[in-house]
Design a protein around this nucleic acid. Sequence first.
DNA 1: GCTGTGATGTAGCCATTGACAACTATGGTG
DNA 2: CACCATAGTTGTCAATGGCTACATCACAGC
Lengths: 206, 206
Amino acid sequence: MIDQPYHHGKLREVLLDRAAEFIEEAGVEGLSLRQLARDAGVSHAAPGKHFRDKQALLDALALRGFLAMNARITEAARASGDHRARFVEIARAYVNFAVTRPVLLAVMYSTKHHPDASAELRSIGEDGMKITRALITEAQDAGVVAPGERETLAQVCFVSLHGAAVLASGNFLDGTSTDALVQATTDLLWAGMAAGLPGTEGASAS
Amino acid sequence: MIDQPYHHGKLREVLLDRAAEFIEEAGVEGLSLRQLARDAGVSHAAPGKHFRDKQALLDALALRGFLAMNARITEAARASGDHRARFVEIARAYVNFAVTRPVLLAVMYSTKHHPDASAELRSIGEDGMKITRALITEAQDAGVVAPGERETLAQVCFVSLHGAAVLASGNFLDGTSTDALVQATTDLLWAGMAAGLPGTEGASAS
DNA sequence: GCTGTGATGTAGCCATTGACAACTATGGTG
DNA sequence: CACCATAGTTGTCAATGGCTACATCACAGC
């Protein structure tokens, strides 16, 4: 018998890791603090020392999710290629993340976070949009996107990609491949943003 | 004391109505079949006669949601005005529905429906996109939208509006009004769809 | 080296819940 | 009138989240 030390040491991390696994396998609704405790070989009330609530654990999960997602997006934004190519890369990164961790995405954009965590999540959740806005700004300065409210354009792009991410991750696409949807969405958005620029008549399709 | 008849009569409807109210007030996670039963003045196992599961009740709720939403969208699609105006009306109807019943929307697009209900929901959930596709087809025939894959365009539009609906209903807009977002989104989408058409240089903004 | 103090983990408890089974009332049909 | 499917009731069970009281440990200050 391996003698377990009284103090687990990294219980918090273990719980989060296991929870992240679990929800993708069985959904959030089946997640149980007690089951997590059992999996971690710890008493049923131990999780309570790290998360005051089940919701608090979900909040922490959401936070980790946003961090991971932002990392992916940031990396994608650094890709080589012209503005449009990088735009597509960002979109791909976002949607792929969503498809890989559909339940986590739902948790991240859940509305039931605790008010305190909510503020932090809200703020960190906007990073993706900021990156998008930066790219659009660059593209406008380079003259490949028509001038206009950057903030608004970025928001629309983000919102649209979010829709793609949500529906793709929920398997609501009914035949269409995720890649094809991302491609079509970015095509349309870019065409819209480029519209009005001289000599862009044929820019709507790739 | 009002003597309750042994058979409630419309228990199923009452449960659904109350559940619909409840989730918007307190979220799905707090919804309890037993509480619903108490509210309806009925024994704790009575709901089981109408819904084999808690999930079955949510499925039924989702179905009602889609029906209501489709009705709104259908009505909007019949609005007067040119194609673009009707497009905007559809978008408005969708997003307004989402903002009015945020939790219901989440239930509708939840992935945990029972497999049987899922098929029906999937099918009825596509009506919105069909309506959008019909409008785009009309617009293409009228020459105000560039030719191209209708199916794909409709899907992209629907996906984008879904993103707007989800984020607006979750209060993730951070300052921007819902109306402004819908306006901006439809502007960009329409500009993208019209791009490539002769004489549309200035069509990107309203 | 000692102490005590806060963080971490344990054990027990309770109300609530979803699901199920066995039983009962109701109303319609042959 | 007998039958029976539908709708509702009571009782039970295991599981859960959250709480409180208690145990153990690590570490800082003396």
